[in-house]
């Protein structure tokens, strides 16, 4: 009786010891990983800071203007090319209906079918 309970206790203690060791080991490993991640995050944040500064430096308006002049065909928009949405002529019917009516097979909205003048003449 004595001996059996003794063995049981010993077994339990060993189990507890082993699991304690494993857990501790795991915790330590995770802590190391966490610290490494923290360091990495800080290093990344510092790198982002540098990149932000570089982004701002590269986005100097005079540099962009120069690059556009050198490399692109596009020129500053003429004031006649600027307008707002509500300055456009009104649609003939509700935009939803039109969009549904004109929707092609693959969901692409096709141009309006009826020109303004025809509708006006029919009335």
């Amino acid at each position: 009786m004595m001996r059996r309970s003794m063995t049981l206790w010993l077994l339990l203690a060993t189990c507890a010891g082993i699991s304690l060791f494993l857990i501790k080991h795991e915790v330590q490993e995770r802590e190391d990983r966490l610290n490494a991640l923290h360091r990495e995050i800080l290093a990344d944040q510092e790198a982002i800071q540098v990149l932000n500064a570089e982004w701002s430096y590269l986005n100097r308006p005079d540099r962009l203007e120069h690059l556009i002049r050198e490399l692109s065909e596009s020129r500053a928009a003429n004031q006649l090319q600027l307008t707002s949405l509500d300055m456009l002529p009104q649609l003939l019917s509700e935009p939803d209906d039109l969009a549904l009516a004109n929707r092609g097979g693959n969901g692409i909205i096709l141009p309006m079918i009826r020109p303004v003048s025809i509708k006006a003449g029919a009335q």
């Binding site: 510092e46 800071q49 540098v50 932000n52 500064a53 982004w55 701002s56 986005n59």
Partner: peptide, 9 residues
């Protein structure tokens, strides 16, 4: 949000 002044290491 364009950076005008920053501190770098």
């Amino acid at each position: 949000g364009m950076l005008l002044a920053t501190t770098l290491n």
